[in-house]
Design a protein around this nucleic acid. Structure first.
Lengths: 228, 228
DNA sequence: TTTCAAACTGACCAATTGGTCAATTTCAAT
DNA sequence: ATTGAAATTGACCAATTGGTCAGTTTGAAA
């Protein structure tokens, strides 16, 4: 692991990979490299978890020297955090359609479709997130307790409002989201299992459609006003 | 990692940890140690994943010398496989209630309750399994393609039979199980997230009950004969 | 064109870790 | 009581890996 003596100081003493210049050639090249590293890191972390990933693997996939990766991102843990931040940002941005003035059926349908689409298009992101939580969210617990919790509280208010107005049946909003996340993300996180069971080499568009359709049907049947 | 030269041979040359004697003192002591190691390994693998786990951690938790662990189980990978096998066995044993002659509503209710109870009582097992699949099931793909697939095919026949007899609405059985597994296992695999969102230090009995109740309600609403 | 801080990287190192083994202890069988 | 195969374990090692750094290159600014 190399000497642990104030890594921060010696780092700063050498150079500061801060402040990407501007629209200079250097700035452009740098942004390009950073993006490639982040993408590579996401793939590797998704495939192997934090502990299983090596900075050498990530650098190789990004096609840059390992020392360069450390020059840009510092430690493996810091790089991992950057990857997580990007993912959580996207995660929190979904669900905008769930608003008091929206039509519940439409809002649920679109939300589910978007989540399934995310599982299909960015499975790596979903898996990195899943892996982090699976192992106790050591790097994310603050985010979960703050941003995610707030997100859920806000959505719970919306669902309760819908229920009060008789638009949907009353439902435990928190657990509803737990189940919704699990159901939609399973198409990314557990893809290996679904492929094996379905006997597919790769999941097809129809598989994702079938999942979205079933989950939507389940939610609508559960929440349909007057239900149980 | 130590010399890779035929580990198998040198191992055999030293001794063979096969054939647990009988009800001798040694036999008993051995079974005890093996059980402690397997339990410790399950916890550690669940908490850190395969790559993040060290045999030293597992040995420490099992309170035996590391060399002893290797004496009993060979390599870390072999120990991991033993842990996985136990877990998958239990996994496949669930769902016995889903039989042609069973009442669908009762069968679903019991299956969901059992899965949630498993998430509550054996969260480690669920997490080891989840971690394995999340990373592409490198050690499990054969099992998934054989045992699990067969399991699902059999259950799909049962559900189709129920539908044909008008006991439930027609439904895509495969995807129904995907969603059911995800929804119930999330109470173990994503416990850290649920705790954060619910603002709990530990999930309570009531939380598991709420989850089971909602999932049951969803499945029954979806499958109720005559539904959509 | 000159300059020099920033960018870059090959080579290296210390810590960690999976696994081994020689030497010792235990105990089931005789 | 004797015996030897099995069980046990402290000490060790080679491979891996995160991270560093000295030396070189690059390009923006003067």
């Amino acid at each position: 692991m190399a000497r642990r003596a104030n890594r921060r100081i010696s780092k700063k003493a050498v150079s500061k990979p801060q402040a990407p210049p501007a629209q200079t050639r250097r700035g452009r090249r740098r942004q390009e490299s950073e993006a490639r590293i982040l993408a590579a890191a996401e793939e590797i972390f998704a495939a192997t978890g934090f502990a299983g990933a090596t900075t050498a693997m990530i650098a190789r996939r990004a096609r840059i020297p390992k020392a360069n990766l450390h020059y840009y991102f510092g430690t493996k843990t810091q790089l991992y955090r950057r990857v997580l931040e990007r993912i959580l940002e996207a995660w929190l941005a979904s669900g905008d359609e769930i608003r008091p003035d929206a039509d519940p059926e439409t809002a649920f349908t679109h939300y589910i479709a978007a989540k399934i689409e995310a599982s299909r298009r960015q499975p790596h992101a979903s898996r990195v997130f899943a892996n982090e939580i699976l192992h106790g969210a050591p790097q994310l617990s603050d985010y979960l307790r703050r941003e995610v919790r707030r997100w859920v509280e806000a959505k719970a208010v919306v669902l309760d409002g819908w229920a009060r107005r008789g638009l949907i049946a009353p439902v435990d909003a928190r657990h509803l989201f737990f189940v919704l996340w699990a159901a939609t993300q399973t198409y990314a996180d557990f893809e290996a299992q679904l492929r094996a069971v379905l006997g597919r080499k790769r999941l097809r568009a129809a598989d994702y459609r079938a999942g979205a359709a079933l989950i939507t049907r389940m939610i609508l049947a559960t929440c349909r006003a007057g239900a149980k």
